[in-house]
Simulated scan of single mutants.
Amino acid sequence: MPEVIFTGERGRLEGRYQPAKTRNSPIAIILHPHPQFGGTMNNPVVYNLYYQFVNRGFSVLRFNFRGVGRSQGSFDHGTGELSDAAAALDWAQSVNPDARACWIAGVSFGAWIGMQLLMRRPEVEGFISVAAPASLYDFSFLAPCPSSGLFVHGDKDAVVPTTAVATLVEKLKTQKGIVIEQQIVPGANHFFDGKIEDLMGVIGTYLDKRLPGSRKDSAA
């Protein structure tokens, strides 16, 4: 899990990167929760998401948004963080010029940023949005949503009601050719405390369905 430093709009950004073993493997970018509420690239959900993709043969990057850890800059209410995410994807593509596709995965605030990046980058073919803050941020930019993906939420989430995510998913489901799935993890709060194994089971099942034959059990 090599440490990497790459250049963002406001200076250096700190990340962890695991290259795939084959040249044309897809890329995955993992985005962490809100920087001002303790979100970092070492968040347990982010860490486990990272390995969900590593274990399926992706080249995977997780990183700290500006002002977090050793990343330079300061919190920018989403605008700058979207720029950081774009810089992360640019960097990952620069070291994987033969990559055939890209996925975005985000947790809470990171899910909001990830869905905005999805709208701007047509090469993103799939997404995982965990605890998407549908009641806290405007998701109306998803008109239409260009890629299929998965929303996962806990039914005990006291930060974002499950109904808010369900309403968003129902809206997105109306688009032809795009399949949006929603899964609920019973007993899970916004941070999936004590339920990360259940969460990863849901995500792993979804990825195996979308990426048949990609599972690499030895790459842990």
Rank of each mutant, 00 (worst) to 15 (best):
D98L: 15
S59P: 00
A86Q: 15
W103P: 05
G201F: 03
T40M: 03
S147V: 09
N43S: 05
S108W: 13
R56I: 10
R66T: 01
M115L: 13
H77Q: 10
I104M: 15
A131C: 14
Q72K: 07
G201I: 09
K176C: 02
T162G: 12
N55A: 11
V45D: 01
A99M: 12
A188T: 03
N48A: 15
A143Y: 08
P97H: 08
P144C: 09
Q182W: 04
H77P: 00
P144I: 07
L136E: 11
L199R: 01
D76E: 11
E81F: 11
P146F: 06
D138Q: 11
A188N: 04
L211C: 09
G38V: 01
I104C: 00
G38C: 02
I5P: 00
A28I: 03
G80W: 04
D217L: 12
Y206K: 11
G201K: 10
Q52I: 15
R23H: 15
G69R: 06
K171N: 13
L117H: 06
L82T: 07
Q36F: 04
G154D: 02
A85S: 15
H190S: 07
V45E: 00
D138I: 13
A105P: 04
A131L: 08
E3G: 14
W91K: 03
T167Y: 09
K171M: 07
D198M: 07
L136P: 08
N189W: 13
V45N: 03
A111T: 13
I5C: 08
E170G: 07
S59G: 11
C145E: 00
T162L: 12
R215Y: 14
D193Q: 15
T163C: 06
L172W: 09
T174L: 15
W103T: 14
T163W: 09
V95Q: 07
R215T: 12
M119E: 08
S147N: 04
R12I: 05
Y47S: 10
A111Q: 10
S214Q: 10
V45K: 05
M200I: 12
M41W: 00
I30W: 10
A87F: 01
G15P: 04
F192I: 02
V159H: 05
F151R: 00
W112A: 07
Y206L: 04
I30R: 13
P26M: 01
D198Y: 03
Q36N: 10
R70V: 01
S59M: 09
H153W: 07
M119D: 06
Y17I: 10
G154P: 02
A111L: 14
C102D: 05
E170H: 14
R10H: 14
V169A: 02
N48K: 12
I178K: 07
D208F: 05
M41H: 00
